[in-house]
């Protein structure tokens, strides 16, 4: 299982690209962190999610 934004998902074994295709995230507007390391967009095809990975998908929101 992979923890994505706090939620456990059965996406281990998939590449990041494959996982993202199953979501409606706007790729232009997000950044992904895997185990506290930023994954560059060019690496989404190569990174294979592993059991126990912690993934954060973040974007900008309003703030002061």
């Amino acid at each position: 299982m992979v923890k994505v934004n706090g939620e456990l998902l059965p996406v281990d074994g998939k590449t990041l690209s494959e996982y993202l295709e199953t979501t409606s995230f706007d790729i232009r507007r997000i950044v992904i962190e895997r185990n506290e390391e930023i994954v560059s967009k060019s690496a989404y095809n190569d990174v294979i999610l592993q059991d126990g990975d912690i993934v954060e998908v973040v974007s900008f929101v309003g703030g002061g």
Binding site: N5, G6, T23, S24, F25, D26, R29, I30, E56, V57, V58, S59, F60, V61, G62, G63, G64
Partner: peptide, 17 residues
């Protein structure tokens, strides 16, 4: 203009940018 960084939400279609 200031912004904050938060977990992305797949439900919200609009992005502040």
């Amino acid at each position: 203009i200031t912004l904050a960084v938060r977990r992305a939400n797949t439900k919200e279609k609009e992005n502040i940018l």
